[in-house]
Structure formats: C-alpha cells, structure tokens
Amino acid sequence: MRIEIDGRKITAADGTTLLGAWLAAGHPLVDHVGCMGQGVCGACRVLVRRAGQDEATTELACVTRAEDGLQAAFLDDTTPHRAHPYHLDPTHDSWDAHGRVTEVFPEAPSCRHCDGCNNACPVDLEVHEGVVAAVAGDLVAAAGRFEDCVMCDLCTTACPEHIAPNHLGLFLRRMTTSLSLRPDDLLRRLHEIERGHMTIDVHASVEERG
C-alpha cells in the first residue's frame, strides 16, 4: 500500500504502523519517537487523513496502522501552552483544594465547551468532561478522567482557551493523591525503619535456589 508522511511517498507493508513504515522506507528519525508501539509516551503525534475522507485526526504514529492512500504529518512537540506553575506543598490546607484548581488553572472556567480536546485525544479520554468536573469541584471524578492520559499535549494544542487540560488533569491527580493517600502499612513500616526497629544484615546467608 502507498502512504505519504511529511510529503514522502512510502510503500508500506500490510500491518505496519506509520512509524514502522517511515523507518522501513529508510527515512531518518531523531524526534517524534519514543516508546515504539506501546502508545504511552506521546512523542509520535501525527495529523492523519485517510483516503476519501475530509476530516483529519490527531493520532500516535507508533500505533496507527498504515492504510492505502493515507496522508500524515508529524506534529512538533512544542505546545502553545502557558506554564501553570505550582508546587505540591505537603503542608497545604487541603480544605482549599477546589480553590487551588482555578488558582493554578485560571483559564479553566472559560471553557468554550467546543469538544476540541475530546476530538484531539488519541487515547479517547473524555477530557472536556474532566475539565467541567474540575471547575465544578468534583475533583476525584475529574482526576479519574485522566487515568490513562499519556501527556501527549494534543489537547493542550487543541484548546483555544489555553486551559492545558492534560496538565490540569495531572495536577488534580497529583494533588488529590499527595493530600490524601496515607496507606497504613506504609506508615507503620516507615515508623519502624525511622526508629531503627528494622535494619538489614548484609552478611546474612542467602541460599541460591534451584
């Protein structure tokens, strides 16, 4: 089958991914690449248009399979997003968690509800619903929407209000965890170690098995 990536006409074998086809055709690759097929690093973002279709979609080149007549273009890893700086302070007043959301992400309440983030997401997250839930103060539900986010930043590029939805989602996940996750077994073990009640004898005998 014939495909075209970044203007290069490529003959691709059946079943190959766009990234695989690009490499097999002998083209150099020093960026837009990472996990090579797992789809977790978000480096190989491409704009894809299939034969006979008007719409173009944003996808990951390491998981998208070649189809005859498909056109694709790599998307740079620069995003137009403004930094949303914050520091997860363990002593922060967790009663103010909702207020922190719009303090760090002041654009979030301006969401136009255009669904561009959902349309852009290559792993089909309900990004927009996450943003809406975050603004409404439904923080745990909002954080849950971003569980499978690979931080490819496509929603950040897509968002006309510069909300940086994936970074908002990550902020929610990080904040809720750091403020609330306190496993009892971990607390006990740390207590034991810090009081010197649990040590390691490096000279203890260890038998090899088998």
């Binding site: 173009a56 979609t57 944003t58 561009g116 968002c159 006309p160």
Partner: peptide, 22 residues
C-alpha cells in the same frame, strides 16, 4: 489564523499551529 482557530476541529488548531512552528 492559529490564534483565531476556535477549537472544535483539532486539525485546524494543530495544523495551523504546526504550520506556524515550521
């Protein structure tokens, strides 16, 4: 155009942004 792209169509926002980057 990249700044004016309004949101619902990712190819428009990402495409104009990519044109701008290059």
């Amino acid at each position: 155009f990249a700044g004016a792209s309004c949101g619902p169509c990712p190819p428009c926002r990402t495409g104009t942004h990519q044109l701008s980057q290059i």
